[in-house]
Amino acid sequence: MALTEQEIRHVARLARLGLRDDEVERLGAELSSILAHVSAISALDLDDVPPTSHPLDLTNVLADDEPRPCLSTEEALLNAPDPAPEGFRVPPIGA
């Protein structure tokens, strides 16, 4: 169950996680060992067992459609590393 360097880089890209070459190598070894351990459950025959996504039996509820106070623009921008007057400034998309 060894993950290739290509697989590690693909997953890191999916997770928007930059990795140095040494981190790719280390994570490849660590993830392979962890997945070898946890993949024991992939072999269990559980086709007739329903999945549990959530421990409580909840039914959906709808909120009243009433306006409520929310954050001001100033508050929303308070922690931004690069705030613009009415938004968050980011580098170009898809340069």
Binding site: V11, L17, L19, E23, L27, I34, L35
Partner: peptide, 10 residues
């Protein structure tokens, strides 16, 4: 955290 993000994303 990186380790768990990677396991989870995988």
């Amino acid at each position: 955290v990186k380790r768990r993000i990677m396991i989870g994303a995988y």
